[in-house]
């Protein structure tokens, strides 16, 4: 059990999330009814994505400061899991939207924003595979990743708040999306934040598995330095 406690914590938090998330009494808001419980499953996808992609950004910057291939591997793995969480968030959002807004895709600013952001990150993976030279690939990917992050953030955090949106927190609404005041009652808060931590830890675990795999795959390159 070396350094495994946080993996078990992830499991415990997620079991708690599923149990409490399905069983607690939730406020009935508008036509959301029971679907407000998606707060514990759909929203943490985006929280964990932001955390993972920010971590990837840090490693990309680290690579540019000190060209160690390990940093490139970390950045790639964190970005990949971030993309996975984004796809899951988009799909779960579409399912929720079908029953809350009437259709899976209503060109909501947040939907368009994350779709563009995901395409930018898909391009990151394509770009990586297009460069055979390892050092050049690492450097170009790091630069592109920094560029991608600073487009991604405004697309999902800033632009959706400046226009009218079906999501909470659009133009004309006070405060943060769904996290302020009466939107998230105290009962939901004590499930929501553990859910965010649990999902993020799970995503991090998957990322570390990928990292360890890549480190074994590239061990000849890493030792050659």
């Amino acid at each position: 059990m070396r350094k495994n406690w946080w993996k078990i914590l992830a499991g415990v938090l997620l079991v708690y999330t599923f149990t409490a998330g399905l069983l607690i009494k939730v406020p009935s808001l508008g036509n959301l009814k029971e679907t407000i419980r998606n707060m514990f499953f759909h929203v943490p996808m985006w929280f964990s994505q932001i955390i993972l992609l920010t971590t990837a950004l840090v490693y990309s910057i680290k690579y540019l400061r000190k060209p160690d291939l390990r940093f490139d591997i970390y950045a790639e793995a964190f970005t990949k899991t971030g993309i996975l969480m984004g796809i899951l968030g988009l799909v779960t959002g579409a399912i929720w939207a079908t029953y809350a807004w009437g259709e899976p895709w209503s060109n909501d600013p947040k939907q368009i924003g994350v779709a563009i952001a995901l395409l930018i990150y898909f391009a990151y993976l394509v770009l990586r595979n297009a460069i055979p030279d390892i050092d050049k690939r690492a450097r170009v990917s790091a630069v592109y990743n920094i560029f991608a992050y600073f487009i991604y953030l405004p697309l999902i955090m800033i632009l959706p708040r400046m226009v009218e949106s079906l999501h909470p927190g659009g133009k004309g609404v006070e405060g943060n999306p769904a996290l302020n005041g009466s939107d998230l009652d105290p009962m939901m808060r004590i499930v929501f934040w553990p859910a965010v931590i649990g999902w993020t830890l799970l995503a991090t675990w998957i990322t570390t598995l990928n990292i360890r795999l890549y480190l074994i795959r590239d061990k000849n390159l890493l030792h050659a330095e």
Binding site: G11, L14, V15, F18, T19, L22, L23
Partner: peptide
Amino acid sequence: VLAVCLTILI
């Protein structure tokens, strides 16, 4: 539903 979800999770 809870049993199904927990089974998948575990």
